[in-house]
């Protein structure tokens, strides 16, 4: 079952695991750590409300129980939950997309790149404005959304912190 409860505890960072979707409002922060997975962050600045999904694969197998695991089920789920259940207006929502690294140099299948491509394509198809696409590379990402400001802190391993 998708957890659509809002996290409101003060001084608490909400960590988002693989294949998980979580939502939070100010003053909470949503945080995750990525390798070849992709984080789709959705933010509504009028409501100071954010959602984050940690996508592992581009396409779901039959009967996949975790809707957040694969891009083709995860992207519609987070958008629908935010627009229909949390009453965000589509025009107020922005998407920020991170991750999708090629962690294993020897891997012939660049799953990270595919994850990022499918997430971007599906977000566009839903008519949501994309603010940031920061994907690729060969190192892991830490990303953290501050739901008060909508700013995402991103640090790629071995690099300086950036804000988007």
């Amino acid at each position: 079952m998708t957890n659509i409860d809002l996290y409101k505890d003060i001084n608490k960072i909400v960590n988002v695991g693989i294949a998980d979707i979580k939502y939070a409002s100010t003053p909470m922060h949503l945080r995750t750590n990525l390798g070849s997975c992709v984080a789709l962050i959705m933010y509504d600045k009028t409501m100071q409300l954010g959602g984050m999904v940690h996508v592992m694969l581009p396409k779901a197998f039959k009967n996949e129980a975790k809707v957040g695991k694969c891009a083709d089920t995860a992207v519609p789920e987070i958008i629908n939950n935010m627009t229909k259940k949390m009453h965000c207006k589509s025009k107020n929502l922005v998407a920020k997309i991170f991750g999708g690294a090629k962690m294993l140099a020897s891997a012939t299948n660049d799953i990270g790149k595919k994850n990022a491509e499918v997430v971007v394509k599906l977000v566009k198809e839903h008519g949501i404005r994309i603010h940031t696409i920061k994907t690729g590379g060969t190192k892991g990402y830490v990303v953290q959304l501050d739901t008060e400001t909508g700013i995402v802190m991103c640090r790629i391993f071995g690099q300086e912190i950036e804000f988007f």
Binding site: I18, L34, G35, M103, L104, K139, G140, V142, F157
Partner: peptide, 11 residues
């Protein structure tokens, strides 16, 4: 791999 421990674990 040299990286964040959780990125390595997730891999």
């Amino acid at each position: 791999l040299s990286d964040y421990s959780s990125s390595i674990f997730n891999t």
